[in-house]
């Protein structure tokens, strides 16, 4: 296995890699702009947004926040163990990370099911157009993150693995990006209106 010291202070080598951080910034700015537009429309139609917000289950949102934060904690722990060359422990925390992501997906599916059953769709009003688009795009990122986690975990546990610490950090950075996006989506969509 190839491990070596990385000079993180060099501007070209942030933990996770420069390309991953460029993606993270682009994603954050894109979601950020959408959230600003959401708040702008909320300012135009405060009553519609307030009534719509009340139809969201903020308890589900809070539990999902805890699932993602717990998953993020396991991810950071997995990276820590990988750097100490304890692959078995790292793989164990990888699996716990995936479990957190899976629980998020299950609860989100339950939430979506209730919304569809109540006849709430993309065309209900502006609030729900944003709700569906933003949460669904975020969900796609979580699914993509899970695929990357499965793939990376498989790569690092197989015999004669050539998985480097940069690969693990890049995978972790993508997973944490899902946390970061959710930490902005949750209060704006579920709480403030």
């Amino acid at each position: 296995m190839q491990t070596y010291n990385i000079n993180y202070k060099n501007i070209f080598y942030p933990p996770g890699g420069i390309l991953m951080w460029i993606i993270i910034y682009l994603e954050l700015i894109t979601f950020g702009m959408a959230l600003i537009a959401f708040v702008y429309y909320g300012h135009q139609e405060p009553e519609v947004f307030h009534q719509s917000r009340l139809q969201l289950n903020s308890t589900f949102g809070a539990i999902n926040t805890i699932f993602l934060l717990t998953s993020g904690f396991f991810m950071a722990t997995a990276v820590h163990h990988f750097k100490e060359k304890n692959i078995a422990k790292s793989s164990f925390y990888f699996k716990l990370t995936m479990l957190g992501g899976l629980l998020f997906l299950i609860l989100k599916s339950v939430e979506y099911y209730h919304k569809i059953e109540s006849g709430i769709t993309l065309e209900t009003n502006v609030f729900f157009s944003f709700y569906w688009l933003l949460t669904a795009f975020h969900l796609i990122h979580v699914i993509m993150g899970l695929v990357i986690l499965i793939w990376t975990n498989y790569g690092m546990t197989k015999k004669n693995s050539d998985t480097a610490v940069e690969d693990i950090e890049a995978c972790a950075a993508f997973w944490h990006m899902c946390d970061l996006i959710w930490l902005l989506l949750f209060p704006t969509l579920y709480l403030i209106f």
């Binding site: 993180y8 202070k9 501007i11 942030p14 933990p15 934060l69 993020g72 950071a76 972790a172 944490h176």
Partner: peptide, 14 residues
Amino acid sequence: VAFQFMELKKANSA
């Protein structure tokens, strides 16, 4: 999350 879990605290100040 960014500074502790993603270890951004170790990165360049920029």
